[in-house]
Design a protein around this nucleic acid. Structure first.
Length: 551
RNA sequence: GCGCCUGUAGCUCAGCUUGGAUAGAGCGAAUGCCUCCUAACAAUACGAAGAGAGCAUUAGGCCCGGAGUUCGAAUCUUCGCAGGCGCGCCA
C-alpha cells in the first residue's frame, strides 16, 4: 500500500482537481505528509488558508489517516503508524531483493566502462570511470537486467606506439615500469619531431600488417591490461568481455565504415589526404564541424575504430561511461552513428578528480595512482583493526579499505569535479564507507548477543517512537531511490540514501534499547533492525561495497 | 571567442529534474552523552575513569553576484563573474 498515493487520491476526489502532489514536512512532528494549498488558490478563488481549513474539515479520517492538522495554508496528514510499519517491514522480510522493482526484467544491457588507455597504472581520476560503471552494472543487475560488461581496449594508436618505441631494446618490462617509460617517451616526442615521426612509422607498419610490430604492440598491451585488470579485480570490478580496437582493423570493419559513410555522401578527402566526415547541421559546438577518420598515410584514427566498434556491438541497448573530456566527441560519434541509422548508446559523463596542484595527467606523471590509494587505505584499515583486535584479518582489512575508497568516490555526483585530499579520502569517520559497514556490523552484533532466531510474528504498532518511525519511513523509500538511481544512472543517490539510513539507525540505536526492552517491543525492534540490515546490505551491494559481520 | 558542466558553512559534499513552512550532512572546533559495536575495569549494589570507526548540543550561510518570473526562488529565466572540460589529424 502506498500511503502517499492514497492521500493524493483523497485530495483529488475532494477538490476535483487532478495532478496534485503532496510533500514531506520539514519536521515529522508536523505530520507525515503535507499538502500546501497555494496551488488551489487561483482555481478556487479563495485564500490558501481558507482552503486548508475547509479541506481539513471535509476529509474523513480512516484506517490510513489518523489525524489531519491544519497549519496555515498547509494540510498536514498523520498516517496510521502501526499499519504503515507493518506494511513496510513485511515487504522487506518477504523479499530478499527488496529495493528492486524488476525494471529490467527481460531486458538486456551492454555496459562499457573503464576503457582506459593501456599505457600505465590507472590513476584515481580514471578509476572514477570504473567505479561508476561497476556500480551502474550492479544496479542494473539488481533490477533484473541481463548485463554484459565490456572493456574497450585501445590497443592501437599513438600512445601505444610511443610506449612500444620507449620499450625498444629493453627485455624485461613490468607493469610498474610503464608509467615512467610513458612519461619519458612523451617528453622526448615533444622535444624531437624525428622521434614522433618514428612513432607514426610504427603505426603505419602495424596497420599494414607487419607481424613483428604487431607482436611488439601486443606484448606491451598485454602487460598493461593484465596489470590494470589485476588492480580492478582486487576491488572486485570485473569484465565479461574485452574488445580490442585492433580487431576492427584486422577484420576490415573500419574500411566498411568508410564505404558506408561515403555512400551517404558526407565523406571527403581533405587537402592533405585525410578522410574526413562532414558533420554540418548537427549543432556541434566546434569551429569546423568535422570528424577526422584517417591520417594522411591512411592509418586509422580513434573515431573510425570507435565507430566500427559501436556499430558492431551487440544489438540492443547500451550504456557507456566517459570522462567529461569526451562530451563533444560523444556528440560527434552519436551524429555519425545516427547517420548510419545505428542505435546511440546512453552515456554517463564524469568530471575529473583534481589535485591541489592542478589536474592529473598520466602524460605529465602528476597523478595519484589507484594502487597507491589502495595501499594507503589498506594500511590505515589494518592499523585501525589492530588497535581494536590485536590480530588483523587481511580479508576484513581489504573490505574496509576498498569500501572506503569506493564510497568516497561514489558519494559525489559524477558531474562534479572532486578535489583529491589524502586526509579526507582516507577518513573512516562520519560520512564514509566504514561508517556504513559499522552500522551493519553493530546490527550483526546485536543478533549475536541475542543468540536466537528472529520471530517475525510481532506487533508492529509497538514501533512508535520518533526514531523508529523515521527509520521505517526511510526503509520504505528504498525502492524509489533505487528506481531513480537506475533511471538516471546515478549511483550517488544510493550513497546518500544509505548514509541517511545508517545515521537514522544510529540515532535509533542511541535512543531505543533493543535487547533490554520488554519482550514484545524487543521482538518488534529485532525485526526492524533485521530489515535495516537487509536494506543496508542490498544498498552497499549496489555500490560494490562488502559488508562485515564484525569489525 | 563559442559550447557544455560546476559554484551551497573554514574544508568536502547532499538538496536543484517536480519552486513551498526555520537550507541539510560530514570533517575540523567547543561542550556534553553512551545501552547492545570495539576494548578494559569495578562490583552485593551504587558509582569513578578509559577507548571508540557511536550519539547530542553549540558556534559557523547575503545558497557566487545582479535583474526578472511568482503569493513564494538555493531550485525556473536572463545577464555577469570564477573554476573545470572541449572546440581537425591524441584517445
Amino acid at each position: 500500500m502506498d500511503f502517499k498515493k492514497e492521500i493524493i487520491k483523497i485530495l483529488e476526489k475532494e477538490t476535483g482537481i487532478k495532478g496534485l502532489s503532496v510533500e514531506i514536512p520539514p519536521d515529522s512532528s508536523m505530520g507525515d505528509y503535507a499538502f500546501p494549498c497555494f496551488s488551489l488558490a487561483k482555481a478556487m478563488k479563495k485564500s490558501p488558508v481558507q482552503i486548508a481549513e475547509e479541506l481539513g474539515k471535509k476529509i474523513r479520517l480512516s484506517k490510513l489517516i489518523q489525524r489531519i492538522d491544519v497549519k496555515g495554508p498547509y494540510l498536514n496528514f498523520f498516517i496510521n503508524k502501526g499499519s504503515f510499519a507493518g506494511d513496510v517491514l513485511k515487504r522487506i522480510v518477504e523479499d530478499k531483493n527488496y529495493g528492486s522493482l524488476n525494471l529490467g526484467k527481460g531486458k538486456s544491457m551492454l555496459v562499457e566502462h573503464t576503457s582506459i588507455n593501456p599505457n600505465a597504472s590507472p590513476h584515481v581520476g580514471r578509476a572514477r570511470n570504473a567505479l561508476i560503471g561497476d556500480s551502474i552494472v550492479r544496479i542494473l543487475r539488481f533490477q533484473g537486467y541481463k548485463v554484459e560488461t565490456h572493456y574497450f581496449v585501445n590497443d592501437i594508436g599513438k600512445q601505444i606506439a610511443m610506449l612500444v618505441l620507449g620499450a625498444e631494446g629493453k627485455d624485461k618490462i613490468t607493469f610498474s615500469d610503464l608509467l615512467k617509460m610513458y612519461v619519458k617517451i612523451n617528453k622526448k616526442v615533444e622535444k624531437n619531431p624525428a622521434i614522433e615521426k618514428k612513432v607514426f612509422e610504427l603505426l603505419n607498419k602495424l596497420e599494414k600488417g607487419d607481424k613483428t610490430v604487431r607482436r611488439r604492440f601486443k606484448k606491451i598491451v598485454d602487460i598493461c591490461i593484465k596489470g590494470q585488470t589485476k588492480i580492478f579485480s582486487e576491488m572486485d570490478i570485473r569484465y565479461d568481455k574485452f574488445d580490442y580496437e585492433s580487431d576492427y582493423l584486422w577484420s576490415k570493419k573500419t574500411d566498411d565504415i568508410l564505404k558506408q559513410l561515403d555512400k551517404k555522401g558526407k565523406l571527403f578527402t581533405d587537402e592533405e589526404g585525410r578522410k574526413v566526415l562532414d558533420q554540418k547541421g548537427y549543432d556541434l559546438a566546434m569551429k569546423v564541424p568535422v570528424l577526422v577518420l584517417t591520417r594522411a598515410d591512411g592509418t586509422s584514427l580513434y573515431p573510425l575504430r570507435d565507430l566500427a566498434y559501436h556499430i558492431n556491438k551487440k544489438k540492443g541497448d547500451s550504456i557507456i561511461i566517459l570522462g567529461e573530456d569526451h562530451k563533444l566527441y560523444h556528440h560527434q560519434l552519436s551524429a555519425a552513428l545516427g547517420l548510419l541509422n545505428h542505435k546511440i548508446p546512453k552515456v554517463v559523463h564524469y568530471s575529473f578528480i583534481l589535485l591541489q596542484e592542478g589536474k592529473m595527467s598520466t602524460r605529465k606523471g602528476t597523478v595519484v595512482l589507484l594502487e597507491d590509494f589502495m595501499k594507503e587505505a589498506l594500511e590505515k584499515s589494518k592499523k585501525e583493526i589492530g588497535k581494536r583486535h590485536g590480530a588483523v584479518k587481511e580479508e576484513n582489512a581489504k573490505k574496509i579499505a576498498y569500501g572506503a575508497i569506493k564510497y568516497a568516490i561514489l558519494k559525489v555526483s559524477s558531474e562534479k569535479n572532486v578535489m583529491f585530499n589524502w586526509e579526507q579520502a582516507l577518513s573512516f569517520e562520519g560520512d564514509t564507507g566504514p561508517y556504513l559497514q559499522y552500522a551493519y556490523a553493530r546490527i550483526c552484533s546485536i543478533f549475536r548477543k541475542y543468540g536466537k532466531k528472529i520471530d517475525y510474528d510481532v506487533d508492529y504498532s509497538l514501533l512508535e517512537s520518533k526514531e523508529e518511525i523515521e527509520l521505517i519511513k526511510m526503509l520504505g523509500e528504498f525502492p524509489e531511490i533505487v528506481r531513480s538511481a537506475t533511471e538516471q544512472l546515478k549511483p550517488h543517490l544510493i550513497s546518500s540514501y544509505i548514509y541517511s539510513l545508517s545515521s537514522g539507525f544510529s540515532l535509533f540505536y542511541n535512543s531505543c534499547h533493543i535487547l533490554k526492552a520488554d519482550e514484545d517491543i524487543k521482538k518488534a525492534r529485532l525485526v526492524l533492525i533485521e530489515c535495516v540490515k537487509r536494506v543496508l546490505g542490498n544498498g552497499l551491494g549496489l555500490l560494490g561495497i562488502d559488508v562485515l559481520e564484525r569489525m
